[in-house]
Simulated scan of single mutants.
Amino acid sequence: MRRTPMMILSAVLTAFLMTGPVHADENRVLKCKIGKARSGGRYDGPALVANVPRAMTPIDLNAVQMTDKAVTKAVIVESMLAERTPTDTLRVMTRLVNCTKAPLQVEARSNFLDANQAPAEVASVWKRVFIPPLATAVYTESSISRLQVQQYLVELRSAQ
């Protein structure tokens, strides 16, 4: 049986939920290690790659693609979740952490792709996300298309 990315994500989430939540000893003032987040290791999932080898950096799917350096120096993606809704659309949720001591505005949009990495629908509109200093915010988007959506890409940029 061929496992789709959603089946794998579902299995990982189920395993996590069965082990229970991770608890912190106490809540402290948030400290971020942006460099560590950026050097998190190689992603082995699906990706968009150029027809010409090494012509561009692969764009990981089922992930967040930060489109400018200002965002990569200020925001960490704490978590991502993708789930099927009761109507079989795909809902993605991304928790973002503002690692700065100032309020931050970013914009996010979602691209929903079919099994061949072709667009299953037009990319969503850019949504503005307000993140308080040293705090979190959640970006959520749902596809319009149903079961043909097999993969997704969330793009994140500085507010325009």
Results as ranks from 00 to 15, higher is better:
Asn51Trp: 01
Thr100Glu: 14
Gln65Arg: 15
Ser79Cys: 07
Leu30Lys: 02
Ser110Gly: 08
Leu134Asn: 07
Pro103His: 09
Val138Ile: 11
Gly41Lys: 03
Phe112Ala: 05
Thr67His: 11
Ala115Lys: 07
Leu13His: 13
Asn51Val: 00
Asp114Leu: 05
Ala118Asp: 12
Val138Asn: 09
Gly40His: 10
Val52Glu: 02
Leu48Ala: 02
Lys33Met: 13
Leu147His: 10
Ser143Pro: 02
Leu30Asn: 01
Pro58Tyr: 11
Leu113Arg: 03
Phe130Tyr: 10
Asn111Met: 06
Arg84Ser: 03
Ala102Tyr: 13
Leu48Ser: 00
Thr72Lys: 03
Val64His: 11
Lys73Ser: 10
Ala102Pro: 02
Arg157Ser: 14
Ser110Val: 03
Met6Tyr: 12
Glu107Lys: 09
Ala50Phe: 00
Ala70Lys: 07
Glu155Leu: 08
Leu48Trp: 00
Pro46Phe: 05
Thr140His: 03
Ile131Val: 13
Asp60Leu: 11
Lys73Cys: 04
Lys127Phe: 06
Lys36Asn: 11
Leu134Tyr: 01
Thr94Val: 15
Met6Cys: 07
Leu153Phe: 03
Gly40Trp: 08
Phe130Pro: 00
Phe16Trp: 08
Asn51Glu: 00
Gln151Cys: 05
Lys101Thr: 14
Thr72Tyr: 02
Ile8Leu: 15
Lys73Trp: 03
Gly35Pro: 01
Met66Gly: 08
Val29Trp: 04
Met1Gly: 11
Ser79Leu: 07
Ala118Pro: 00
Ser124Arg: 10
Met93Phe: 03
Ala115Gln: 04
Cys32Gln: 07
Met56Glu: 13
Tyr139Ile: 09
Arg146Thr: 14
Glu83Asn: 01
Pro119Gln: 10
Val71Asp: 05
Asn62Pro: 06
Ala159Val: 14
Pro86Ile: 05
His23Tyr: 11
Gln150Val: 13
Lys127Tyr: 07
Phe112Gly: 01
Gln160Lys: 11
